[in-house]
Simulated scan of single mutants.
Amino acid sequence: METPVSGTRLENKVAIITGGAGGIGSAAGRIFCNEGAKVALIDRDPDVIDAAVEGIRRQVAGAQVMGVVADVGEEGAAQVAVDAVLKKFGGIDVLVNNVGIRRYEAVADAPWDAWDDILRVNLLSFVSMARAALPALRRSGRGSIINVSSTGAVYGRKGMGAYDASKAAVLALTRTMAFEEGEHGVRVNTICPGYTRTPFHVNRMGNEAVDALVPPCVLQRWGTPDELAYPMLWLASDEASYVTSATFMIDGGFPAEGGGTAVRTKL
């Protein structure tokens, strides 16, 4: 069922969202469109990105949304994607670096090519997209870059060394870019999602297992993609015009009980 564009918080803004076909990325695309933005979703799979674009058009009447197929871990592909957005929408005001891949392996066990893949996608794609989009973001005079990291960047855990290291690097990249780009009117911030019920986790674990798992956070439940996208909406808007170089933990109060990271299941 379509809902007409109902807000103006991003009116006249153009936003790029990488990983735009995923749960958080597509939720952000829908919410941004519903607040008046023109949105470009970028992902590697043409079928999935087409489905995400069509889903937004079905839900938001009058949505101005486009899909771009690109592997933005390659610098040249990032520039091609940005050029396509500029040709279609004429500018860029918001860049959401949301794309990410993960592997579940200890540092001692992860093959070297896994490190290469994860760092290329989870870190270097953020660099390639920022470098390609910065001229337009600077011209905007009110540019906002939102980098999606992870609670794993802050809290230690077993079995995800490459992923957590890449996400920790995103925090450092955010702070450096905030200092470099402040004079150009571009704000740079990070959100760190906690346990979020995305199609990725449901496909990996199954609905029953996801329902049974109680995340180790104060709220003792999974977050929804929308609950991650709304903080992005605020950071993208002029309401956050005095916010830069910040890290926001969107995690339900994680970790609970003195810093432990163990999860439990419902009885």
Rank of each mutant, 00 (worst) to 15 (best):
E2P: 13
P4G: 06
V5Q: 09
S6C: 14
G7H: 11
N12E: 15
V14F: 07
G23W: 04
I24L: 07
S26W: 04
A28R: 07
A28P: 09
R30G: 05
N34E: 12
G36F: 03
A37K: 05
K38N: 09
V39A: 06
I42Y: 00
D45P: 15
D45K: 06
V48E: 14
V48F: 08
I56N: 11
I56R: 11
M66A: 12
V69R: 10
A70V: 02
D71K: 07
V72T: 08
A81C: 01
A84T: 05
K88V: 15
L95E: 01
V99H: 04
E105M: 11
E105V: 13
E105D: 09
A106T: 10
A110H: 06
D113N: 14
A114I: 14
A114H: 08
A114M: 11
L123G: 03
M129G: 04
R131P: 11
A136P: 01
G143L: 05
I145E: 02
T151N: 15
G152P: 08
V154P: 03
A162S: 06
D164C: 14
D164S: 12
A168G: 09
L173S: 08
G182K: 03
H184V: 15
G185V: 02
R187T: 01
G194I: 01
R197M: 03
V202Q: 07
M205P: 13
A212S: 10
C217S: 07
C217P: 03
R221P: 15
R221V: 02
T224H: 11
D226K: 10
P231A: 07
D238E: 09
Y242Q: 03
V243P: 01
S245G: 12
T247D: 04
M249R: 15
D251V: 09
G253Q: 04
G259T: 06
G260R: 14
L267T: 15
